[in-house]
């Protein structure tokens, strides 16, 4: 199946998570790369990709771990980079790029990944609705 054939334009903006709670600790993160975390939301469980860019203006991002083009949970395992000024991750399967900031797919306007607000609270990573 080709990448375009299976893509579904699921546009879910910033899904609701219960207000602020600890997701994992800072030592679980890998600098300039991603890890996956499990998240319970009022809509059911979901999987989040966390990216850590130490030293950058915004250091921490949380974005949907699910890749809509391959239907596999793999986004955390993509390569991080910047394209046309925005931090992005490239899906490891069919290589589409998603902006970490707002989940927008660079190659396809109709596809956006969910994103969450995340921050450091001392040594912990906090996620918010």
């Amino acid at each position: 199946m080709t990448a375009t054939a299976v893509k579904q334009a699921t546009v879910t903006q910033s899904r609701q998570a219960p207000t602020g709670h600890k997701l994992c600790s800072k030592t679980d993160l890998v600098a300039f790369s991603g890890v996956a975390a499990w998240l319970e939301t009022p809509q059911g469980p979901t999987q989040v990709a966390l990216f850590y860019l130490p030293g950058f203006e915004r250091e921490l991002y949380a974005i949907d771990h699910h890749d809509p083009f391959s239907n596999a949970n793999v986004i955390a395992h993509g390569i991080v980079g910047d394209i046309k000024g925005a931090a992005v991750v490239a899906s490891p399967i069919y290589k589409q790029h998603f902006r970490l900031e707002d989940g927008q797919c660079v190659e396809d306007d109709s596809v956006t990944l969910a994103t969450w607000k995340v921050s450091f609270k001392e040594a912990d990573v906090w996620i918010e609705g």
């Binding site: 890998v30 600098a31 300039f32 790369s33 391959s70 239907n71 596999a72 949970n73 793999v74 395992h77 993509g78 390569i79 991080v80 490891p92 399967i93």
Partner: peptide, 22 residues
Amino acid sequence: DAAHIPLQDTNDTFMANMQKNG
């Protein structure tokens, strides 16, 4: 090594080829 990890595609990072279902 930590400095090289972020350079690799997932295949090199996990030293295995990713298949279509992850």
